[in-house]
Design a protein around this nucleic acid. Structure first.
Lengths: 210, 210, 210, 210
DNA sequence: GATGAATGAGGCTTCATTCAT
DNA sequence: CATGAATGAAGCCTCATTCAT
């Protein structure tokens, strides 16, 4: 009991420190100072500085994975949108409520080293597969237009990530509800008025390239 | 002349090293080894390891800034799309042709330290302002639907960045033309078939929140 | 307790090293080798190589300051001489008993950098003010002849310093008692026989200059 | 001709630089910048940074040696004083007219390394021998009182050096004439009024020591 | 378990000197 | 001769990790 508390305290303090100073600039000294434990104690609970970050990221990934569910297209259009909303809202909500986690995920865990890159890659892959599956289902159900699921899944992911990333970096943005609604509308409808978009047949145009 | 070559060689090698190992894991030793120059030579051309990265990033930012132009909505719908394509293609094209730059921008320069964060923030701010202006113009010209320009600009930026980011991380994706086309279509039209999207009036729904 | 011992050990070894090789030629490697501690240990106790020297000098200055007291002329001629002797003997005694300190003060701390120069300047200023005050008092008490206290204070200080300095540089000199006695007599009486000195009225001569 | 000029220019600039920043803080870059010659040129004229300092010091020592002559006591008391004055004035005058030399001699060349220490030692030894000889002669001629020539020679040297040293360190002092006169009076007469000094028989007292 | 002192590998930078043009 | 680019040895300091108490 005591043991788990101590461990959790260190973990929580490490999160704060990493979020504030970044992984590389954070020292074990920073963490133990904030956690008010001795240096040796830190290594009693964790193998290394790196393993603490690892665990934080693993926990975060597990939580986020639980926030997103594949979309069941059989429940009608409104149902699809509701599920999309639930996913975006769940994912964003958790991170916006935990700004330290947000920073760690989108700023500090990026480009750290090949090991982390792999972990992040797997994490995103799960989301992307889920998105692709949802898009495919949607297409079959005549809800989603014809599109390249691989690329568009990335676009969807990117639209959510960027809003969160810029939030983490301190950009001044509307509140959560507005952000979620705008992201969903953007994803559902794109940018243009339907009558204009309908006039374009960009998708059939031959794109010339260098 | 010789002088500039030497400098460029070191810069290029540093770019490779940074792209491969990340800023923090890269050492001056790595760079000079790759460039086959002596340690002192490095410091003859650059003030510090940090200043090399700085310069690489500044150069990259300058190039990318030149690749993107605000959209002139007065040239008709097709013109707008062509300009969007030119922007996306120019931006992505340069980075896809320079994978090391791509990695540095989207993976290695993220969360490095407050100084770099500021620089990146300014860089993205310029793009976002440009996007916002374009969206506003488009809205006035009755091309772009009613939307929150701040949030949607981030979505647009994010959709491009994520495709590039995952490319940099080695995800297997279609070729450049397909990616550009899909990104544009995604941005113009969103995900859903127009008839379906038209049935939804999500934007008017009251979103409840915790 | 152990902690202070360790610190003192490093400090003592650093003193030896500085005395032997001079500040600039001494490396942290030299110090830790002599102290038989690891590199990191050194920095556990001291901020930098410079700070060790700083501390040695500060300690030395504090000790030396305590060795010298202003002269109370009210205790008669013999009393004045006794106080002069106590001062010279206390000052010289400590340094002659600590040859490393002696070398550091008079050889290694000279012309190191503006920061040290300032410290040394303050140190000497305290002595000089004390000397000036004593000379003034002595003059009022009709013990000390008419003289320029500023210049003569320097002369007194210099006579002591030079004897110590040359001792530090290895010049073969008489033992401490003889040195103290000779310095005192020199300061009290000057060089010449009183009857000769009395015949001169040099101080009234007009000195011509280029 | 040209060759000697260039050499002299470098030497002069090096002197300025050494005087201003000290030997260790001065870099070859500083010197060549001030002299406006190329790096390679510097090494065309001098073997090393160290050898420049060496030469400066050697030159200075030669000049100073020429300024001081042994005292011929046969010319009467006034003559002795005149010769003392000539020596002190010559020595001090040159250094006060060349503040850079002054700083180099008394601040920068102190405790540099064993090689310089040796050179300085030889330099001072010459002076001290000269002083000792003069004192001995003076004693024989019944001009100088009974004293320990070794120690008192150091005192004399020290009184001059300290005044110069503190001048070099920027202490505010009277003009040259006053300084010379005060130093001479101090050396001839000591501190005390003759009648007081005469009452003391300090030199016969037994000095007790630890 | 808990502590915190000790460790030492490893990184960045400086600068006197050399050498090809 | 003059130049200045190139060199690399050497020094300082940090900080993750270990270990004796």
């Amino acid at each position: 009991m005591r043991r788990e508390e101590r461990r959790a305290r260190i973990l929580a303090c490490a999160l704060e420190v990493f979020a504030q100073k970044g992984y590389h600039s954070s020292t074990v000294a920073d963490i133990i100072k904030k956690a008010a434990v001795a240096r040796g104690t830190f290594y009693l609970y964790f193998k290394s500085k790196r393993s603490v970050f690892d665990e934080l990221l693993d926990d975060l990934i597990a939580v986020l994975n639980s926030k997103v569910r594949p979309i069941d297209a059989s429940r009608g259009h409104a149902g699809v949108v509701a599920q999309m909303e639930a996913n975006v809202d769940g994912f964003m909500g958790y991170l916006l409520d935990n700004p330290a986690m947000l920073r760690v995920l989108l700023a500090e865990a990026v480009g750290l080293d090949p090991g982390f890159d792999k972990k992040m890659n797997e994490f995103y892959t799960r989301f992307l597969e889920l998105l692709e599956r949802s898009l495919n289902t949607g297409h079959v159900m005549k809800v989603v237009r014809h599109l390249n699921t691989k690329v568009v899944s990335l676009c969807i992911l990117g639209s959510v990530k960027e809003v969160l990333y810029q939030t983490a970096m301190g950009r001044n943005l509307p509140n959560r509800d507005v952000m979620v609604r705008e992201i969903l509308n953007y994803n559902i409808r794109g940018l243009m008025l339907p009558e204009v978009a309908g006039m374009l047949n960009y998708s059939n145009k031959k794109t010339k390239k260098t």
